[in-house]
């Protein structure tokens, strides 16, 4: 158990190239579930690998607890990692895979066996201990990878898009399991993903990255409700935040409004934005309605019994405090 302090970390893969990670400083609290979120190529995986010791930063330091681990090889850092591609050892059985780290530490056999059984139980692999990975499904292999990481009781657990190779249904169930597991372990977890739903549902805090920098770092609700710039607002949420010209709502700059915060009515209302329904997409629990308002498309979420069909006239209104204002030029949020 330890916190992670990263300061001034920069990593370039090639001389002269744009840095993959640019002067990042961030502290992950002890026992926190910390998510690095961003589009592909934003540097989140590089940052994770720098924490792991698989990449050497050009500048900056990494502290785990009181230890400066910047120059230490991965094995001396007391951490574990779950890889995107599982990375289970094909030549070892499930039990040998899970016990690998402990065997490397030369722990007594009985302790290794007990830890393997415990970790395998956590991820429901108890019946598969003697199998080889080739006889397992993708989801089971990822469970092996998680169990292998948990078994060493690391002070820091790193996860690199552990769910992205699983199919949608499995991803959802495994996500809940991971969250439950994290609660049980109380380990500091750094979790990399490009999936904003994963980030919001799992993280105690989410750091949104773009072009090698952390753009915003906060609780899931903070980054969702109060994005610091248009990028974050557009990256989080399904559908992304609507970005409308501010004049429409009597302000300057760009008005960022979440689809679920827009109230639609089929009767004219004072101060409401008039538009016409262009497209209705049933999502099961809600309707995703695209409304053409002037030259703008506005996405709104409505109850399934919303009466307007294609081509119907609707009036959209938003509570002023639900609008997030951005500067038109800098794209930064105008108020804290």
């Amino acid at each position: 158990m330890s916190d992670i302090r990263i300061s001034g970390l920069t990593k370039r893969y090639a001389r002269g190239a744009a840095p993959a990670v640019k002067d990042v400083s961030v502290t992950v609290e002890d026992g926190e579930f910390f998510v690095l979120l961003g589009p592909s190529g934003c540097g989140k995986t590089t940052l994770l690998r720098a924490i792991a010791g698989l990449e050497t930063p050009d500048t900056g330091t990494v502290h785990l607890g009181d230890r400066d681990v910047t120059a230490l090889p991965p094995r001396r850092r007391d951490l574990a990692m779950v890889f995107q591609g599982y990375a289970v050892f094909p030549h070892l059985t499930v039990a040998e895979n899970i016990g690998f780290g402990l065997r490397m530490r030369k722990e007594p056999r009985a302790d290794v066996d007990a830890a393997v059984r415990y970790a395998a139980g956590l991820v429901q692999l108890g019946d598969y201990l003697d199998r080889y990975p080739s006889a397992l499904s993708g989801g089971q292999r990822q469970r092996v990878a998680v169990a292998r990481a948990v078994a060493v009781r690391p002070s820091v657990l790193l996860m690199d898009e552990p769910l992205s190779n699983l199919d949608a249904l499995l991803r959802l169930s495994f996500r809940s399991e991971l969250k439950a597991l994290a609660k049980e372990l109380h380990t500091t977890i750094v979790y990399v993903t490009h999936d904003q739903v994963e980030a919001l549902s799992l993280g105690d805090r989410v750091a949104v990255m773009r072009a090698g920098e952390i753009v915003q770092c906060g609780t899931p609700m903070e980054v969702y409700d109060r994005p610091v710039d248009r990028f974050v607002g557009g990256f989080l949420g399904t559908p992304p935040m609507n970005m409308l010209p501010g004049e429409v709502f009597g302000g300057r700059g760009v008005a960022g409004i979440r689809a679920e915060n827009i109230e639609a009515s089929t009767t004219e209302r004072a101060g409401a934005l008039a538009g016409r329904v262009r497209l209705v997409e049933p999502l099961g629990s809600q309707l995703l309605v695209t409304v053409a308002a002037g030259e703008q498309d506005v996405k709104i979420l409505t109850p399934t019994d919303f009466p307007a069909g294609d081509g119907a006239d609707v009036w959209l209104s938003v509570a002023p405090e639900r609008i997030r204002w951005f500067d038109a030029d800098t794209e930064r949020a105008l108020a804290g």
Binding site: R75, Y86, P90, F100, G101, A145, R148
Partner: peptide, 27 residues
């Protein structure tokens, strides 16, 4: 031989050469 099993071996206690010996060579 996938690079990531070599990296996994390093994470879980192997030196670079140890990872080569324990993860790469067997496969």
């Amino acid at each position: 031989v996938p690079v990531d099993i070599e990296e996994a071996a390093q994470i879980f206690g192997c030196s670079r050469f140890g990872a080569f010996r324990r993860a790469v060579v067997p496969n």
